[in-house]
Design a binder for these strands. Structure first.
Length: 692
DNA sequence: GGAATAATGAAAACAGGA
DNA sequence: TCCTGTTTTCATTATTCC
């Protein structure tokens, strides 16, 4: 049996997907899922159905494998999964100049040759899973082509009967088999005692049958066991996703996260009713993530956007992926699994706007204490906010654009359990338009620049070269610039938030101007050893104070004597400043922030504003384990509010390199917010022993 | 070696017309 | 409803400068 760590599982998944859609006869193996996950394949059947195994792993080999003049271009397409013979033939026919044409032809040839390899795609498919063609033909004849579930079950059974020896390791799978399995096993064995692999499997029981099937498919008994033990349930697909995210950053997040009580407690509810397909999905998710970590350098992870070099190398594939992805997204939309952003983006309401919502029903699990408040970018990759909401007790996110509070846009989502009635804004109102905020710019503002609000304040500013280019372009114009020039200038002004500071002169905002727009005291980030570059970065990553304070305002009556705050990813202290400006005394603040410059800024602000409470700063959220939290809570009598805006690096559209979603290196810290919030809730409710 | 600088798209929402 | 063009986006990386 072919042993590829991901291949058979994925095939099973495809079949399940197709069946669930009632399209068992219309196999669409070439889905985006397939293509994407194929990127992980270490070994796989030859031909088009394994397109990316070489592309990902074999660039060095490919580069050295050929000596002919066009070997590079051949290697390029071979790396995409086409056979060397086919590529050579197409290049001979079409020449090597036009790679577009070559790809098109290859795709045509592939489509026309696929069905020829066997009687049907169905047979090809199961052969691709590693079953012998002879066996597949026989089983298809017995079961008919319509019932793929039955075919697979029979194939597995035959396979199990046929193979009595221990599972063979595919030599091709190399370091992803034994080494990888070992590491996976070790990780799992940290939190469970399932690794007693000597246990005899009894095919007579349902569990035994499943275990047998899984092991015959090539998984270690331990993997199969843990999948069955943990995943016999309705929530399994979700868990797979989460597991993928978690294991992908196991080194940092480690096993505390896997112990997340919500994750596994909800899994245990349904008992061992999971199907073979679900179980394989589970293992698949774990394997993929682990293998990705083990086999690919960070920048080459298949889920990451990858370097520009890699993008170029796989451009043909990317095209296909995009098309497939679009198709899938449509389906995803139809499933209504996407959070829809409100338009206008005013959440439950903003000052000076009608139609406020003042009442909502929170899920019981979300009710405080403590209150919690989580923030991140609204325009995250699809599915991210669904996950965030799901992890935060299914609380509906409140999406608000700070342009309703100040002169700059800032589209953010907030998941919180705060009351939403009787909110009030900070006074005085901050300037709401560019001209109010920067009156001196009015003199130089051309009539054709119709902006009244700035776009989102980012972490970087425009180059001097760009503003110089704009000046020259305008100076070359006699009177009113040509429409083309106007358009170019406006585009750049919008993109870089430039304002008019002289005749034909635009400029980026100064750091203190950004501070003002965001609602911080002037010079909040200035001095004390922080560079100008880092000021922009810290400010760009911060809360908009007026927006957050509007949400926090409901706490003023509830905590007249002051508040105990746990501030995660505190940055330059947006939450602290917001509460302070609301007049809510800060009794005890525990601020967790990785950057020393930011911790210094908060400490400096704390001292300058003569705070009477205590500020405890912690460098890393990883330090906040159960014991530390228990100690802090014991000292302070509990936290009233847990606030955090976890890193958005891997969510924001500005990131061209690693917009990897919640599994991204930094954005996965969201799960630490969940972990810590859970711990705080449990400890404050006296149930810590349940989860640690 | 740190700070400043410049160059680097694509995903997703949205608007408007067919 | 679908298609197409427009707009927006808590950034990363490589290089230069001091």
């Amino acid at each position: 049996m072919l042993r590829s760590f991901s291949w058979p599982i994925l095939q099973v998944k495809r079949m399940v997907d197709n069946n669930s859609g009632g399209e068992a006869d219309n196999f669409d193996w070439d889905t985006e899922d397939d293509l994407e996950i194929d990127n992980y394949a270490i070994s796989a059947p030859s031909g088009l159905s394994t397109p990316c195994g070489e592309a990902v792993l074999g660039s060095a080999e490919a580069g050295s494998s050929g000596n002919s003049p066009n070997s590079k271009i051949i290697d390029h397409f071979v790396g995409m999964g086409f056979s060397r013979e086919m590529v050579a033939k197409v290049i001979e026919e079409k020449g090597e100049e036009n790679s577009d044409l070559i790809l098109e032809t290859l795709l045509e040839y592939s489509a026309s040759t696929l069905p020829c390899s066997s009687n049907s795609k169905l047979i090809d498919h199961f052969v691709g899973m590693g079953f012998s063609e002879e066996m597949v033909v026989k089983v298809v004849q017995e079961n008919g082509e319509g019932n793929t579930d039955s075919i697979l079950e029979t194939l597995l059974t035959y396979s199990a009967l046929e193979t009595t020896a221990p599972v063979q390791q595919n030599p091709d799978s190399g370091n992803c088999s034994s080494d990888y399995e070992g590491s996976l096993l070790n990780d799992f064995s940290d939190f469970d005692s399932f690794s007693e692999t000597e246990e005899i499997i009894s095919p007579s029981s349902e569990e035994g049958r499943k275990l047998l099937h899984l092991t015959k498919m090539g998984y270690s008994e331990a993997e199969a066991s843990v999948a069955m033990e943990r995943c016999g349930l309705c929530y399994l697909i979700h868990i797979c996703n989460i597991f993928l995210l978690m294991v992908g950053r196991m080194s940092k997040f480690h096993l505390d996260s896997i112990k997340d009580p919500r994750l596994f407690n909800c899994c245990i509810e349904n008992g061992p009713d999971s199907t073979i397909e679900e179980l394989t999905d589970f293992i698949c998710a774990a394997q993929i993530a682990k293998a990705a970590d083990a086999l690919f350098p960070l920048e080459d992870k298949p889920f990451s956007n990858g370097s520009s070099h890699k993008k170029r190398r796989n451009w043909g594939y990317d095209l296909l992926l995009r098309k497939k992805k679009l198709k899938l997204e449509k389906r995803f939309d139809e499933d209504d699994d996407v959070v829809h952003l409100p338009n206008p983006m005013i959440g439950f309401g903003v000052p000076n706007e009608p139609d406020k919502i003042t009442h909502r029903v929170l899920p019981e699990a979300a009710l405080g204490p403590p209150y919690f408040y989580y923030e991140n970018v609204a325009l995250a990759p699809k599915g991210v906010w669904t996950t965030i909401s799901r992890f935060l007790y299914d609380v509906e996110p409140e999406f608000v654009d700070s342009k309703f509070f100040c002169a700059a846009a800032r589209k953010r989502g907030y998941v919180h359990n705060l009351p939403i009635d009787n909110r009030f804004p900070l006074l005085p109102f901050p300037p709401r338009t560019i001209h109010e905020a920067f009156p001196l710019t009015r003199k130089w503002w051309p009539s054709w620049d119709t902006r009244t609000k700035l776009n989102c304040l980012q972490t970087c500013i425009a180059s001097a070269r760009l503003t110089d280019k704009i000046r020259k372009a305008l100076e070359d114009s006699d009177g009113e610039p040509l429409l083309g020039i106007q358009k170019f200038v406006l585009e750049q002004c919008r993109k870089w938030n430039l304002v008019w500071v002289g005749r034909n002169k635009v400029a980026p905002l100064e750091p203190d101007e950004v501070e003002m727009l965001l609602g911080f005291p002037r010079n909040h980030t200035r001095g004390g050893g922080i560079s100008r570059t880092d000021r922009y970065k810290s400010l760009g990553n911060s809360f908009q104070i007026d927006t957050v304070a509007y949400h926090f305002s409901v706490l003023k009556d509830k905590f007249p004597g002051g508040i105990n705050l746990l501030s995660l990813f505190s940055g330059i202290g947006g939450a602290e400043v917001a509460l302070h400006r609301l007049g809510i005394p800060l009794k005890n603040v525990v601020a967790v922030e990785i950057a020393e410059v930011n911790r210094n800024i908060l400490r400096s602000w704390w001292e300058q504003t003569n705070q009477r409470g205590t500020l405890t700063d912690i460098q890393d959220v990883q330090e906040l384990n159960g014991d530390r939290l228990e100690q802090l809570i014991k000292n302070f009598g509990g936290f009233d509010l847990v606030v955090g805006g976890s890193p958005c690096n891997n969510l924001t559209g500005s990131n061209r390199y690693h917009r990897d979603g919640l599994e991204g290196k930094d954005s996965a810290l969201f799960f630490d917010f969940c972990r810590i919030l859970d711990l705080v809730k449990c400890i404050m409710n006296g149930t810590k022993s349940m989860i640690v």
